[in-house]
Design a protein around this nucleic acid. Structure first.
Lengths: 352, 352
DNA sequence: TTGTAGGCGTTATCAA
DNA sequence: TTGATAACGCCTACAA
């Protein structure tokens, strides 16, 4: 048996081997036309004998669809984006799509055109845009460019007419976190925010503010500190916050990493959590239950976001293929969940 | 301007528009044959006018190469695998490959054949196998199957003749960690290991043991506890370890997540880190500097692993295309780095 | 330097 | 139920 068959086995080889025409083999494989049972058996045997693999490039060429979805993402070294990608992969597998992955090194990067061109040239059936909305890095969405591209589903962005979006509800998540702190009887609830050029950061800030105002509380600027999502900025953030408002007894932190920094700062300052300071994070990363103390956090349903994104894309692709109306709503938002742990209510079991 | 051009613009449209033949357009695009400067300009203009995108499916079909690399990975919700994937993506971009991503939900899964068939059918130029070696989930590597597949580069696996492997040196990393603890004068150094069906876990265990034995120390079984990589098992692990060997004053933990659990257990037991117990982790996740106390950890060079994997694959692909000998060594191993922090040497700045 | 023709591996159409 | 034939969009000899 030759190790490198000089001639990749094609559908024609199979046809010859089974004494039928290539068309019949194709029919047996795709099931689009009936094939006699006896013939089909012969064909299947030939396929096994020859180790035939259909060439999906050729198939895509004639079918005008590649069964491929382009995924443009960034920040994969964070937990959230990875998690979403897993959801995307699972559902794509289920629906028979392959994933063409494209990572943007910096989400602000302007090489959007290059990426879109590549995906377009590879004739992906659709695109999932999983790059965080930062500054005006979505400006191109309004452009006429969009019409010349395959269907796109956007993740976590400000709703925009004519654009399919799947969101996780950052506003609600922040509200739930803040409400929880209010219900614990906390008087002065600070916020350590993400950079406000991020849409998600703005949404979480808005949730925190609206919740406080609705309760007749103060939500002034010096209760807020800007972080950069990293733990270091959470640590510095708490220091600054306490400097400005020493009476603070709770803080909502816009992500878990910064919350880790907050916990560290609290330890250094000798503040007890949650007695002196209650802390809520966001993202519910896998290791927050083992922080010291275990961190109360908001869990966005990222796996579902990924799955829903592919489902939505699929239905758009199908609708367009059949020139039907699109039945999916333009914006779909998944509600989060608050997971309460020691950093707001518990005494961590201490001492032996 | 029609929103859905009924007829995707092809190289022939461009040719007509520019008053040349399709072949000339192709030459202008690929640069494989000279084209008069004046003609080329006309062609480029036509391409812009028409918004032409070459069809890479068709190109792949005739060229017999798709400029695509299949990446099979798992555990993407952990930091390590994501990091490696980023490296893979970066280098693939640089070399002009697109990435076809395939995630295995369980790394022990037996559906290896399905995955390989899909990749094979899509005519990827090569494959990167980034699934952790667990149990005998690499058994297929020895099979004749391998010869019927495109070139494959394996990540983190036990070297095997005839197989290209890119590794990070788990054995050395564990040795460095243990050596560090020895040099601090620690007397009784425990190990919290990963599941021993993982090759990497065995390597790290071996490093710990050999280092201790080389120093004339004890490395007996009751200095070892098995974990499952998750924080919970680290927490339970330290409890068990101290139960068995109360005199323990240092522990090497096979990953950072479990180390987080160990820190938590130490707090609960009232043990001071590092005074009573020095702790070293593995992976150097981004948030370990903000653990309490900051965690000393081994940093594997994962980004480089990803890049090197693609480079290696690329050179194998090229060599095979030209029927040359493969010039890359079969096994390439990248050494790790030990990052020392408070959990072994420091006093975390405490109180104000 | 450019044009023409044939083929890459499939599927779809039209007959048989 | 099956077979021949013509696309799908591109590249590459071979000719001009």
């Amino acid at each position: 048996m030759a190790v490198h068959p000089s001639h990749r086995v094609t559908i024609i080889d199979v046809a010859r081997h089974a004494n039928v025409s290539a068309g019949t083999v194709s029919n047996a494989l795709t099931g689009k036309r009936p094939v006699a049972e006896e013939t089909r058996a012969r064909i299947m045997q030939a396929i096994r004998d020859l180790g035939y693999q259909p060439n999906l490039l050729a198939r895509g060429l004639v079918n005008q669809r590649s069964q491929t979805v382009g995924v443009v993402a960034s920040g994969l070294d964070y937990y959230g984006p990875s998690r979403t990608l897993i959801g995307i992969d699972q559902e794509a597998n289920a629906l028979g799509y392959a994933l063409l992955l494209d990572l943007l090194h910096s989400p602000m990067e302007a090489n959007v055109d290059t990426v879109l061109n590549v995906l377009s040239a590879r004739r992906v059936d659709g695109i999932i845009w999983a790059v965080h909305e930062i500054g005006n890095n979505r400006a191109w969405v309004a452009s006429e460019r969009l019409n010349r591209l395959p269907p796109i589903v956007f993740l976590t962005m400000h709703p925009q007419p004519g654009v399919a979006v799947v969101n996780t509800d950052n506003y609600l998540g922040a509200k739930m976190a803040t409400q929880h702190l209010l219900e614990l009887g906390r008087c002065s609830i600070g916020l350590i925010s993400g950079p406000l050029v991020w849409w998600e950061a703005r949404e979480r800030q808005r949730g925190w503010r609206d919740c406080l105002l609705a309760a007749g509380r103060e939500a002034s600027d010096n209760l807020t500190v800007l972080g950069d999502w990293r733990a270091a900025s959470g640590e510095a953030g708490l220091m600054a916050l306490i400097e400005a408002r020493p009476e603070i007894d709770a803080v909502f932190v816009a992500n878990d990493e910064m919350a880790l920094g907050v916990l560290r700062a609290a330890h250094r300052l000798g503040k007890r959590v949650p007695e002196d300071l209650a802390v809520v994070g966001y993202d519910n990363m896998p290791d927050v239950p083992y922080f010291w103390p275990a961190l109360t956090s908001v869990r966005p349903r990222l796996l579902e976001v990924g799955k829903l994104a592919i489902q939505t894309l699929h239905s758009i692709v199908e609708a367009r293929r059949q020139n039907q109306e699109i039945s999916t709503p333009e914006v779909q938002t998944l509600g989060p969940e608050l997971i309460v742990r020691e950093s707001t209510v518990g005494d961590p079991p201490t001492g032996k």
